[in-house]
Each structure stands twice: as C-alpha cells, then as structure tokens.
Design a protein around this nucleic acid. Structure first.
Lengths: 231, 231
DNA sequence: CCCGGTTCGTTTGCATACAATCCTTCGCAT
DNA sequence: ATGCGAAGGATTGTATGCAAACGAACCGGG
C-alpha cells in the first residue's frame, strides 16, 4: 500500500522498514516457501532502491528466513520434514528453558494474567474460534517468555519461531489434538503455579512434540495413516 | 577456462568474505566490545567499497554480534553482567538439548573419538597447556553437537556461542575450577556412554553455570591488584 | 534427432555519487 | 563565564551506474 506522507514515521530507516515488511510477507506466506525474490520487482513493490532492499535481505538470510544463492539471488527456504523436526526440537529446547525459568521468576500478577488469557482461550475453544484461540495462545507463550526474564532467550525464541510460524498458520489440527493441546495448557498453568520447573519442562517438550506432529501430519499426504509412534 | 588470477578464492562474494573477516575480528577481540565501526576506515582496511561492508555489518547485527545505532553506525555490544548471565542461560539450554539428543543418537565410533579427545585434553591439563585444552574442549563440544544430528540446533548454538567466545578467550580460570571442569567432562562421557539423557542435561547445565561464574569472576575485578600486569 | 557452443537479455554484485543526519565547534548574547 | 544556537565537517543512508555472472534461446554440426 502506498502511504505518501510519512511525516513522523520517516524517522525509521528504509532498510529497517523493508526488513519488517519482508519478514511479515514471509511469515504470513505472501512470499511462499520456494519463492525466488527478484530485486527489481521487490524494489518497485516496496518503492525503495536496491540498496536498502538488499541490506534487509541479508539480515533475513542471517535470521534463517531466506537462503542466499550466490549470484542467483535469494529464495524462501522450503522446509523438509527433517528441517521441521529439527526446528521443532530447537523450539522445544527454547520453550522448555523459558518455562523452567518462568517457574522460578514469574510473579503472581503475571500468572493471573496467563490464567485470564487461558480462560479466554477456552472460550475460543468452545466456540471453535481458531484465530482467536491462536491469538490467546501466542499471547500466553509471549507472557511466559516475558516471565523468564531473559531477553536473549526471548530474542532467539522469536527468531526461530518465525521460521515455522508460516507452517503453524496452516496447521488446522483436528478436534482431539486441539483438546490435547488445551489439556497441556492447563497442565502448564498448574506447573507454573506450583513452580515445578521439571514438570513445566516436560509438559512443554511434549507440547512442542505434538505441535510438530500436527504440522507434519498436515504436510504429509493423507494417503494412509502409517504414522507410527515416534519418540 | 580457469583464469589463474585468484582462481578459487575469487569465487567467494566480497560481502561473504567481509562477513567472515569481521566476525573473526569481533570474536577474537580485534574489534573490542564498545568499539565503534567506522565504515570508511574499515573499507580501506578491508579494501572493499561500502556496499559489501554494510551488507556484512547488517548480517552481523542480525547475528547479535553488532548493534546498529540509527544514523550513528554500529558498535560491538558491551555485555553487562546480566547480558552474560542471560546468554549463558541460553547457551545452557542449547547445550543441554544437544547433549540429551546426542545421548539418543551418538554412534559408538563418535563416542570413542570423544574419549580420545578427552584423554588428549587430560594431557593438556596435566601440562597446564590452556590453548591446547581449549582446542580439545571445543572439538569435543562440536562432536557432541554433531552427534545430536540437528543442524538447526547446531547453527543456533554456533551463533550464540560467538557472542561470548571473546569472553571465554580471556577466562583464565584457576586450578580448582579447571579441575572441576575436567571432572564434569568425565561425567559427560559417562552419561553419553550410558545414554542417560537426563543426567547429561544436568551435567551440561551445571557445566555452563560454572563457566558463566568463571567469566563473571574474571570481569568483576577483585578490587585489589588493579595495577597488576596488563596483557 | 540430439548435442555442444555461442550470443544476448536478465539479474546479481560492487562501486560511487548524492542526500540526510549527526556531532563538534565556534560565535554571540545574557 | 556560561549557555544557547548556528555553521561546518564528518558520517551514515539511499540511489544509481557499471561490470560480471547466470540462463535461455538460437544455431550449427555430428
């Protein structure tokens, strides 16, 4: 969209604005996995010259949201099933650490807010409101991150999460998986309240494993259900 | 077909070469924390124009090795004590996950190689050969990473590790801490051999906590001896 | 019919010119 | 003397020009 008068917002450097914009485009699927980025086309679309665009692309490549092909531009990486498994394992490690630290550091007020969001999430669940559910879900995870009081961990979590966010948008899991997820969330709150870091870690690890399975199930052709239980 | 002028090395794009060079300069302390990067000066030093230099700087910023100040250039971040604690907590989470996965996936051959490196490391310890010790230490950790069979985890580990690598170079810990580290390494190998993921996690978490303490102890001057020999 | 080579348009990579911003410093008035 | 403010130099941010690499199409030969 063209916003001609930038006035106060012009304070922001173009390369930073382009970075945010491109990241959103990738995370939200406007730039789909496998898509090749043409500098000239993107320059026109974003109304900037090649210099800030290229700088933003380099940063996205460092974040893992783009892959640079020498002399052949950049593409949005297509994640193989193994890539997805690896990324979720990494996410699980980060979430588990977050949760464990949050158990030590969360305040009663933060816990109450998480409870409130959890009930809102239950409401969304009852109404089968998936977007609303996702929104509260993300808010809860963000609050847990915040409660861990570790900006470095939060930052890394966000970066890695962006790589698989696009996949989660599509993961429209079935009702029983949804129900399992809700139960896991209740267990999380329980663990947080009891400050049981080990249990929190275990729940989050399992939670992420289930999410990974759900995403893989979406991607894998539904031909047959040969999905044997894997650790 | 092959033009002998610089041949193989010229294959590499300038921005990639500059990226590697700058990263080394930061990790090895040639660009010290707090140092401000002047584009013109670096351009002359590296014999490239501003375009590839700026692209490399943007990527380093995305990796967390530089901080960009809008309209005021880039600086090597100075880590506060809290920053160090946070980064080590993050590293601990990554190493713990690595170790736990390695317990599941390591081959006997890899374990033997780690044992061999461990004995070499003991030799270095006996001779008080700190550089040799570090070399074997890093090799062992890299092998454990490899054994975890998770490229995404390895990549993130390397990126985060680079942020504190410069600190570790200086951490010249005393003998009893060194001895404790050696004992922890033996426990690691034991846990790997027994495929005891939970124990491996616990050892690595403790190991990283000790490393963090050692680094913090180096930074916090012991008040006296401020006029001691400078390196 | 297939294959190798060549040529040309397209795209990326790098260098440089220009614009905007910042920081210092100097002058001036209070 | 001190504080404020403007001007100048220096530095960063952006745009554009030029060269090199890639890839597709074309062409000629086997």
């Amino acid at each position: 969209m063209d916003v001609p008068t930038q006035t106060a917002a012009t304070r922001r450097a173009l390369h930073a604005a382009v970075l945010t914009r491109l990241r959103d485009m990738i995370v939200e699927g406007e730039l789909a996995p496998g898509a090749r980025l043409n500098e000239r086309v993107l320059c026109e679309k974003l109304a900037v010259s090649r210099t800030p665009l290229r700088e933003a692309m380099k940063m996205l490549a460092a974040e893992g949201l783009l892959v640079l092909l020498p002399n052949r531009g950049a593409v949005v990486p297509e994640l193989s099933a193994d890539d997805i498994r690896h990324t979720f394992e990494l996410m699980a490690a980060l979430e588990a650490a977050n949760g464990e630290l949050a158990c030590q550091r969360i305040t009663p007020e933060e816990l109450d807010e998480i409870r409130a969001l959890h009930y809102e999430m239950l409401a969304c669940y009852a109404r089968r409101d998936l977007p609303g559910y996702y929104k509260r879900n993300a808010a809860i995870h963000n609050l847990i991150n915040l409660a861990a009081r570790n900006p470095a961990l939060t930052q890394t979590y966000r970066t890695i999460n962006a790589r698989i966010q696009a996949l989660r948008f599509r993961s429209n899991f079935n009702r029983e998986k949804w129900e399992a997820a809700v139960e896991e969330h209740e267990a999380m709150i329980d663990a947080l309240a009891k400050r049981d870091g080990a249990r929190m870690r275990q729940i989050l690890t399992q939670h992420l494993r289930h999410k990974c399975d759900a995403v893989l199930a979406e991607l894998a052709p539904p031909v047959q259900q040969s999905t044997a239980a894997k650790p």
